[in-house]
Amino acid sequence: MTAAITFYTHPMSRGRIIRWMLEEVGQPYDTEILGYGNSMKDDSYLAVNPMGKVPAIVHDGKVVTECAAICAYLADAFPDTKLAPAPSDRADYYRWIFFAAGPLEAAITNCSLGVQVPEDKRGMVGYGSFEDAVNTLETAVSGKQYIAGNSFTAADLYVGSHIAFGLMFGSLEKRPAFLSYINSLQERPAYKRAAEIDDALIKAAQETA
Score class of each variant (00 low, 15 high):
D92S: 13
K144M: 02
K121H: 09
C67N: 15
V48H: 08
P103R: 12
G123Y: 08
A209L: 07
Q27V: 14
H10M: 04
S180E: 14
D92M: 13
D120G: 06
E119C: 02
G126C: 13
L157G: 11
L137N: 08
H59G: 05
P50Y: 12
I182A: 06
D198Y: 04
L157T: 04
Y181Q: 05
P118Q: 00
A91V: 03
M40Q: 15
T81W: 04
M124V: 07
T81E: 05
E105C: 06
V134T: 05
L74R: 11
W96R: 08
D92N: 14
F169T: 14
A200K: 13
T153P: 10
A107E: 10
Y158L: 03
E32P: 01
A106C: 06
A3V: 01
D156I: 04
E138W: 06
T208D: 05
K82G: 04
I147E: 08
D199L: 07
I33T: 13
F99S: 12
V54T: 07
T6C: 07
R16N: 14
A86P: 04
R188M: 04
L157Q: 11
F130H: 13
V58Y: 05
Y36M: 09
A75F: 08
S180P: 03
P50H: 08
S161V: 01
H10G: 01
S180H: 13
V134D: 02
L113K: 15
K203Q: 00
E138I: 13
Y36H: 13
S129A: 04
D92Y: 12
L22N: 11
Y73F: 15
S44Q: 03
V125S: 10
P50T: 01
F7D: 02
K53N: 09
G102I: 05
P87V: 00
R90F: 10
D92G: 03
W20I: 05
